[in-house]
């Protein structure tokens, strides 16, 4: 091997390893990522764009997309604010149990989403620990849009925090100290000095959270009730239509979701310079 490798490396000044390794990478990704994605698009548009369009414009489909966007939006808002707060507390203060908190915040990424949904049902469901106390007052949390938001919050909990905390950790304390000696209150310092430095982390944390929340299925199907036109999100719609054998209807939404995530990750990747601008 070692006697062949140096000979392979350069053939008349041409690096063979380079095109070989790039080709191999793409070849490996082909059946794993590219072809599944491509087949959505090929299938979805094979009957013509107008078929695709009418499948997309079904009131239930439009509702499912809107519901997904709305619930994901509110979950994102909550988790970014929470992530910011948690990152601030956990990187500024050292206290007993701090590491335990960090681990707990990170936990939801490792828990199967079905378990997350199940856990929420056990807490908020009509016979759950909290739900039992609320239902006599006519407050129903599960099987509503609120439940979907709760599920989204749970499964995307550590994402924004995970992006923001490292930035907090590396941020120089002297910036905040300088602001204080200049005469700023804590709030002014946070608003004028700390927050602008976190802009990039906040935007990318929000995009990650949103992308993840829009695609959430496992927990949503348990807590939402999956009622078409009421609590059915886009991924649930795809699943339902697929089960009913309406592959075109499922596929139309699938295309939208796939394009949507592609867009978000493109922004994350190509706007990197802007997000990290100093």
């Amino acid at each position: 091997m070692s006697s062949i490798a140096p000979a392979m490396r350069h053939v008349r000044g041409f690096d063979v390893v380079r095109p070989l390794s790039i080709g191999m990478l793409i070849f490996m990704m082909l059946p794993l990522v590219f072809l599944p994605l491509a087949s959505i698009f090929i299938f979805g548009t094979s009957n013509g764009l107008d078929k695709f369009w009418s499948a997309l414009m079904q009131p239930e489909a439009v509702f499912a997309l809107k519901l997904s966007m709305a619930t994901s939006f509110w979950a994102t808002v909550f988790n970014v604010i929470f992530g910011l707060f948690a990152a601030y507390v956990l990187s500024r203060y050292n206290f007993w149990g701090r590491n335990a908190l960090i681990v707990t915040i990170s936990l939801p990424t490792a828990i199967p989403t079905a378990v997350a949904g199940f856990a929420l049902l056990l807490l908020w469901g009509p016979y759950g620990t909290l739900g039992r106390l609320l239902s006599p007052h006519g407050v129903q949390v599960m099987f509503t849009a609120g439940a979907i938001i709760l599920a989204n919050i749970f499964v995307t909990f550590p994402l924004a925090f995970g992006v923001i905390k490292p930035v907090f950790d590396t941020m120089s304390r002297s910036l905040e100290e300088a602001s204080a000696t200049i005469g700023a209150t804590r709030w002014q310092t946070f608003w004028h000095v700390t927050l602008p430095s976190l802009r990039g982390a906040i935007v990318s944390g929000a995009l990650l959270t949103f992308a993840r929340a829009v695609g959430e299925f496992g927990s949503t199907i348990l807590v939402s009730g999956n009622l078409a036109g009421r609590t059915q999100t886009a991924p649930l719609y795809i699943f339902a239509k697929f089960n009913e054998g309406q592959i075109e209807a499922a596929n139309a939404i699938a295309i939208v979701l796939a394009l949507f995530s592609f867009l978000i990750f493109s922004v994350l990747f190509f706007a990197r310079d802007w997000l990290d601008v100093d």
Binding site: L175, E177, A178, S179, A180, T181, P196
Partner: peptide
Amino acid sequence: ARERGVGVIFQSYALFPK
């Protein structure tokens, strides 16, 4: 610190980057 009105020039200057 904020009520003292002292000016500190930090070793790293601590200018606000944004």
